[in-house]
Nucleic acid binder design. Structure first.
Lengths: 331, 331
DNA sequence: TTGTAGGCGTTATCAA
DNA sequence: TTGATAACGCCTACAA
């Protein structure tokens, strides 16, 4: 079996037609006589012909490829979203090019450049924060972009999110019924979504008649270790409940508490922020805000397909429903 | 700002040189006078020129893109490997095209076809099992392939793995010192690597003077729920320790035990199989075989770069070192 | 050191 | 219903 690439010309020759005709049958163009189509199909099978997507991309200016940038694929949160993106993408015959950015502005810029140079038809962008430079880069690209789990302050870029404000409000509201000191642990306040959460937290507090205390808000990074470290501080301040927006941090906190012999939920209640799988793996399992991670990705990709195909889209700022899964870290 | 694509010709015109020269500076060819180079660079900056990777790919027959197929990116095990792959890939300026196969033979076949049609320069393949059809497809491709965490029985395809046999042996050996009935829970025995594990388990058992009992080997799927369900069966048979090759299953088992009030490790010992992050998140944290997941991916991708660049490679069957992390689910 | 010209494998526009 | 024949944007001998 000689292995030099077989082209559309080879097929045309074997089938005894012109390459234009071969192109037509490959692309499902109706204007081909059935008999001719069969001849071509046979030739294709015989030669084991496989269209060259690169050449096709050059000629058609469509690559059926979309770029996906996320902080890191090892995060349960982002990988769940990514799965939703990929499923819908393959449903529409797109391939996903993956890039880990580590939330690093420079890396983000680079991978977006690289995506554009590879002529992706669209970009799905996830990132806990959206830097100014990146936002501009995205906005000036003539390629459709959809943000997931990230908010563009000006709401210019299409995006898919949950209502962070409401989720924070509800979680806090729940804890404040049985606790006097409820802490909130979130990511950087540089991110629009975390600001929203803060406000929700604050509102629930005040409605319940508690004063907002800045000292009970913790900006954390995203690690398990970080959660563990926080334990002592919380205990010192007399905190007896916490809403934790990052799951890994919530698990860390839980472990910290268990190690100190603090009983959960009897002596300390926890609500985690996004219901990634391991909130269910802990013992006790964590009550948590159930973000529809997979759906966020799926809906984002669906929206992107519309944008890429220039279909009409009514609304580009999508909010998906969340709920609170009660498990065993709350009373 | 008019937004029609600017090509190498535009740059050539503005710089007052031929397009060949532009191509040279873009590709870092040394044969360009410094002064000319500067003119070109300026023109590039002025026009905000970005080379079209698709056209480049067509002309050069290299896309600097590699395909990666894995069962599902939501698995902590595979996503850790994927991260290693991606890091090394971007180090060598390759992009990763991602595809989830769900271990489904048909999907695997399809995505590999799609990768080949997109002219990827190489393929990284992960999958708990390697079906005959897929193996043949991979072998007959004129594109380099590297397997990760998957064994080709004939050892024809390059691969990167740990020594599953040894790992199973060591884990069993450890448990058998303090337990009379040690179970082994693994994935499908249709996979070469699981056969290896079985043998390791059996050897350790026999060396310790215990008879191998088929009844203590459990073929499980890969879910948390599955682990939980297994609890009762294990207890019924009087098992007091288990090696569990899939982490999620191990965590499920742990939870099942805790729910029944069985003390870990005092009354039951567990060793998990791959040290994905959440083995550390449980309470007690799970002792586990530490597979160097990130490295598996990184090494695989590094090997693939050599294959793609047709460099000499001494050995294509790579085995990485593992160890056993003692945490708190063993005595 | 630089330029010319012929591909690379398709798609797409016109004619026929 | 089919077939020529330009693009598409770049790389790469080969010449100059």
């Amino acid at each position: 079996m000689v292995e030099s690439t077989t082209t559309i010309y080879d097929v045309a020759r074997v089938a005894g037609v012109s390459m234009a005709t071969v192109s037509r049958v490959v692309n499902g163009n109706a204007n081909v006589k059935e008999k001719t189509r069969q001849k071509v199909l046979n030739a294709i099978a015989e030669l084991d012909y496989r269209p060259n997507a690169i050449a096709r991309g050059l000629a058609s200016k469509r690559t059926t490829t979309v770029g996906m940038v996320l902080p890191t694929i090892t995060s349960a949160y982002f990988s769940a979203i990514a799965r939703g993106v990929d499923d819908v993408a393959s449903m529409y015959n797109y391939n996903i090019v993956l890039a880990n950015s580590d939330n690093d502005e420079e890396k983000e810029g680079k991978v977006i450049e690289s995506f554009l140079s590879k002529q992706v038809d669209g970009i799905v962008f996830m990132g806990s924060s959206l830097q100014e430079s990146v936002r501009n880069q995205l906005k000036s690209a003539r390629t459709p972009v959809v943000l997931v789990g990230a908010i563009d302050g000006d709401k210019e870029l299409p995006s898919v999110n949950i209502d962070y404000h409401l989720a924070a409000y509800q979680a806090t509201e729940k804890l404040v019924k049985t606790n006097k000191k409820v802490a909130y642990i979130l990511g950087s306040l540089g991110d629009a979504e975390n600001i929203e959460r803060m406000v929700g937290y604050q509102e629930a507090l005040e409605e319940a008649g508690f004063a907002f205390d800045e000292d009970l808000v913790f900006e954390g990074n995203y690690s398990f270790e970080n959660g563990k470290t926080l334990t002592e501080k919380l205990l010192e301040k007399g905190v007896t409940a916490a809403v934790v927006s990052t799951d890994a941090v919530a698990v860390g906190l839980l472990n910290g508490l268990l190690e100190k012999g603090v009983k959960v939920p009897d002596e300390f209640e926890i609500i985690a922020g996004s219901n990634s799988p391991f909130t269910e793996y802990t013992y006790p399992a964590l009550t948590s805000v159930n973000q529809p991670l997979y759906d966020l990705g799926a809906v984002a990709m669906r929206l992107l397909t519309k944008l890429m195909l220039k279909e009409d889209v009514e609304e580009t700022q999508l909010i998906l429903e969340h709920e609170i899964f009660e498990r065993h870290s709350t009373k």
